[in-house]
Simulated scan of single mutants.
Amino acid sequence: MINSKNFALIGASGYIAPRHMKAIKDTSNNLVAAMDKYDGIGIMDSYFPEASFFTEYERFDRFVDKWHRDGNKKIEYIGITTPNYLHDSHIRFTLKSGAHAICEKPLVLNPHNIDQLKVIEKETGKKVYNILQLRLHESIIALKEKISKELEKNPNRVYDIDLTYLTSRGKWYFVSWKGDESKSGGIATNIGVHFFDMLSWIFGPIEENIVHLKQSDVNAGFMKLRNANVRWFLSVNYNYIPEKIKIIGKRTFRSITVDGDEFEFSDGFTDLHTKSYEDILSGGGFGLEEARNSIDIVSTIRKLHPIGLNGEYHPFCKKILG
């Protein structure tokens, strides 16, 4: 293929990996190799059946090293869709292998990891890109433009926002790495980081961070952004989903209200990974500094002690603490 670029993928069996495979294919590029400890990767037949596949990191490492030494062949990008706590290590491997990294969120678990990766970027001349696909969602871009215009007229305006996100998970969740805070970063990191990124992108950096509720299956709190007060509630427990949502058979509830008005963005998610790849390949993309705000937020949440039903807490907190 003319001008096609070569990719590799670390992590191929999870929920999000096929979106990366599709994005590579949709942008007319080639997947050379993939690595995953789990070997049930039949999904690859739909995208890149000729790609080399490894279940051992050491053999994948050897392949990548040998492959780019063979003539003029080169792996230019490596996608990373592994468990959160491994992102930092796999990004380092990618940069040192002479490739750019395209990593799922959360980019890393702690802000100091970003500082270290900036050093390695400088040493290698390669870049780290974070998949922050909500920034490419048409409805969210429109909201950002609307808020920006309003803030031009009134820079001191503060919006009131309620963020509610419940995505039901079964018992497997707590047995897997996602249920281990040392590996996933906990609920706020695992399912909240992209919402926190989106809100701080639109309403400015965080100024105050409070946690009201912190359990293995639910986190809730309050954050003051430069131009918004945000009450947030995140959970993987089906029991906390509103009855009207349960009645229609849904297991997920997502709501963002801005000054009491519901912000609707249920549609438009289908091709956001492809859009992310197109953005990166055309010279855009979101780098280390763009990821910092949301990593700061979730890292702080992890360290804070919950204060219960005090102050500006999300109404859903009463479902648990009331």
Rank of each mutant, 00 (worst) to 15 (best):
M1V: 05
M1F: 03
I2H: 02
N6Q: 04
A8P: 03
L9G: 00
I10M: 11
S13A: 13
R19M: 13
A23I: 12
K25P: 09
S28D: 15
L31G: 08
G42V: 12
F48V: 09
P49W: 15
P49A: 14
E50Q: 15
A51C: 13
F53A: 04
F53Y: 13
T55I: 15
T55G: 02
T55M: 12
E56S: 13
E58A: 15
R59H: 15
F60H: 10
D61I: 07
R62I: 14
F63Y: 15
K66W: 07
R69S: 12
G71A: 11
K74H: 14
K74W: 09
Y77T: 04
I78H: 05
T81P: 01
Y85S: 13
L86I: 01
D88Y: 09
H90L: 05
R92E: 13
L95R: 02
K96H: 05
K96L: 11
C103V: 14
L107H: 07
P111L: 14
I120S: 02
E121Y: 07
K126Q: 09
N130S: 11
L132I: 12
Q133D: 12
Q133P: 08
Q133T: 07
L136M: 09
S139P: 02
A142R: 11
K146S: 10
S148H: 08
E150M: 08
R157M: 09
Y159R: 07
D162M: 11
T164A: 04
Y165D: 10
L166I: 15
T167N: 09
Y173Q: 07
V175Y: 11
S176M: 06
W177T: 12
S182M: 15
G186I: 10
A188Q: 04
A188P: 06
T189R: 03
F195P: 00
F196M: 02
E207C: 12
N209T: 11
L213W: 08
Q215S: 11
Q215C: 01
Q215P: 00
V218P: 01
L225I: 08
R231F: 01
W232S: 00
F233A: 00
N237D: 14
Y238R: 12
N239D: 05
I241A: 00
K244M: 01
I248H: 02
G249D: 09
K250D: 04
K250G: 03
K250P: 00
R254S: 06
V258M: 01
V258A: 01
V258R: 01
V258N: 00
D261K: 09
E262N: 02
E264K: 09
G268H: 08
H273K: 11
S276V: 10
E278T: 15
D279K: 15
I280E: 12
L281D: 11
S282N: 15
G284P: 05
G285M: 10
L288W: 08
S294M: 03
D296L: 14
V298R: 03
I301V: 14
I301Q: 03
R302L: 10
P306L: 04
Y313I: 06
P315G: 11
I320D: 06
